[in-house]
Design a protein around this nucleic acid. Structure first.
Length: 557
RNA sequence: UGGCCGAUGGUGUAAUGGUAACACAGAACAUUUUGGUUGUUUUAUUCAGGGUUCGAGUCCUUGUCGGCCAACCA
């Protein structure tokens, strides 16, 4: 309740404004929205925006949202996608009022078409698609009437009936609205309403030989469901005139269409066609590859629904073209993960450290907090021994000025354990460093440090004897450029060759018994999430995102 | 040569005729047993011209720039 009150004082976006107006002036008592995916691909970050918008609105205002599959084209649509889409919506945390399909309305839609024919507002056209295209004219020149435009209602009725009966081959006839071939809006130049397709539909099977076009299905479906606010993206603005024309001439419930700008995210692609290409041509492992901007991909990567919803809400809605920084999404992911992720230590590029003054064969148990941001998360045991592993990066024999990790003669703290001093570097015959010898400060143990020794850095580490090898998949952005679709050439030319790097990491033992669904922060490395390919004894972790790294930035300069 | 949208910091949104706000990104400093987190500071006279008004990012007008529209796709 308290949060709802604070939200009310927040400024409204243009859609909320419309809704509040409609509600306060009594146009509606409650609102109905719908999320209308076409089941021909997986949901991506753009759909997630639309989902959060549509469902979010009916969460905030009294009302509900329908899930309606826009399945008017049997050739491209499949049931496989239906289940994936439902799973994604639920994962994002939303539940629809009704699960519906445009194909549920095929009978009603057919009767609507008959009404239009009877009113002399639709006709059967024998023109080919080329001919129809030619009749259309161009945005700057008016079109021409089809030679079949003046058929009588009776004739049209009979022909339309025969189209339905499957008497004509694909493409031989269409049903067109009779509006105005010189209309300034191209969509009003006698748009095609029905086409013949002798194709099996994923739900209606072989019942239909004719299928309605988007424009003849969407608005009417909204109307049948009494959708009050039908939200879609800007490219449908010109369709609104036709949407209203159909509702008006059919005399059915007046749903209203409102358009908002799709949210683009830089360094990513959301064209279904292109995403499909990445999958089919094996640039990624599938629709749920952690590099994909799909909901399934983000889930597998370790993004949380909370982070995605937060991201979408921060962006807001408007009517102008936009391109949101990927870094905002990453910020939202980090912000949520920082609060919930369990801290664990994993070394990805190991360097052996021998603590010469620590007894051989002895194991000392250290305790380390699971999450400093959340005291209720408790702590865990971490074994400390004579031989440990640290990151190669965390040692430099000849460090630059600002480096304050381990180097000869320098002190460093091992997280939750002791301060150590680097005494000696051991090399093999080739001159490669094979181990670094250190000594630990006995009274410097974490939490009971009385040594007075100052350590500039704290490193993550893992006991060599206890380390569990795990597979770690390091993901980075899929595209190197901000807008991969822009300019000449193929968008695939901009794929980041280093978008996936697989390494073996050495993990502290706790990770072997942690819940597989948990989100982790591998200390100083980033956030990680167990991949579904993991098996008992063979753990695989996906890097969700790195930590912010100010040091890396200063090093670059 | 048409119609329809839109234009506010690098990015995304806000300001609803009363003197540009918030977040991200960037920069700097402080704090920190994660170079994480956290805190502080910092970055714009609102596409341009003209008009209305005591007062314009907001209203009007002209222009410029960007996007969308000529699939039997959605």
């Amino acid at each position: 309740m308290a949060t709802e009150e604070t939200k009310e004082t927040k400024s409204l976006n243009f859609i909320e404004e419309i809704i509040e107006n409609d509600l306060s002036n009594g146009k509606y008592d409650s609102i109905i929205t719908r999320f209308p995916p076409e089941p021909n691909g997986y949901l991506h970050i753009g759909h997630a925006s639309s989902i959060v918008l549509n469902f979010g609105l009916t969460e905030r205002y009294k009302g509900y949202t329908n899930l309606r599959f826009d399945d008017t084209n049997p050739v491209t649509e499949e049931t496989e996608y239906v289940e994936a889409i439902k799973e994604d919506i639920r994962w994002l945390g939303f539940e629809w009022e009704n699960e519906l399909y445009a194909s549920d309305y095929f009978d009603t839609l057919y009767s609507y078409a008959v009404i239009l024919i009877e009113k002399g507002l639709a006709y059967v056209d024998d023109s080919s698609s080329d001919e129809i295209a030619r009749q259309k004219g161009t945005p700057t020149t008016p079109g021409m009437d089809s030679p079949f435009r003046s058929r009588t209602s009776a004739e049209n009725l009979a022909l339309f009936e025969r189209m339905k009966a499957g008497e004509f081959p694909d493409g031989s006839k269409t049903l067109r609205a009779k509006i105005d071939m010189a209309h300034p809006n191209m969509l009003m130049r006698d748009p095609v309403l029905y086409r013949i397709k002798h194709a099996r539909h994923h739900r209606t099977g072989d019942k239909w030989k004719i299928y309605p076009m988007y424009d003849f299905a969407h608005g009417q479906s909204d109307s049948i469901e009494k959708v009050t606010h039908s939200l879609c993206t800007l490219e449908f603005v010109p369709h609104r005139e036709l949407y209203n024309w159909l509702i008006e001439n059919l005399g059915i419930y007046p749903s209203h269409q409102y358009e908002f700008a799709r949210r683009n995210v830089n360094h990513t692609i959301t064209s279904k066609r292109k995403l499909m290409q990445l999958v089919n041509e094996k640039y990624v492992s599938g629709w749920d590859d952690p590099r994909m901007p799909t909901v399934a991909g983000m889930r597998r990567r370790g993004y949380t629904p909370e982070a995605i919803r937060d991201f979408v809400e921060r962006i807001g809605v408007s009517k102008r073209e936009n391109s949101v920084d990927l870094s905002l999404l990453e910020f939202c992911v980090r912000e949520h993960l920082n609060k919930i992720a369990l801290r664990r230590m994993v070394v990805l590029d190991p360097l052996k450290i021998v603590i010469t003054n620590f007894p051989e064969g002895e194991t000392e148990i250290c305790r380390s907090e699971n999450n400093p941001e959340d005291p209720s998360s408790g702590d865990r045991e971490v074994p400390f021994t004579r031989e440990i592993l640290i990151e190669k990066d965390d040692f430099m024999e000849n460090p630059p000025k600002k480096y304050h990790r381990l180097s000869p003669g320098q002190h460093v703290r091992l997280k939750s354990a002791y301060i150590i001093r680097c005494d000696e570097v051991i090399r093999d015959a080739e001159g490669e460093i094979t181990e670094v010898r250190c000594s630990y400060i006995e009274n410097s143990k974490s939490g009971q440090d009385t040594s007075g020794v100052a350590a500039k850095a704290t490193l993550h580490w893992v006991s060599a004897a206890h380390a569990i090898p795990v597979e770690v998949r390091l993901y980075d952005r899929l595209f190197l450029v901000e807008n991969p679709s822009e300019g000449e050439g193929d968008f695939k030319d901009h794929i980041n060759p280093a978008s996936l790097k697989t390494v073996t990491g050495y993990a502290e033992p706790a990770l072997a018994t942690d819940s597989p669904g948990a989100h982790f922060q591998f200390l100083r490395l980033g956030y990680f999430y167990a991949d579904k390919d993991s098996a008992p004894g063979r753990l695989i972790f996906n890097r969700t995102t790195t930590l912010r790294d100010n040091f890396a930035k200063t090093v670059q300069k």
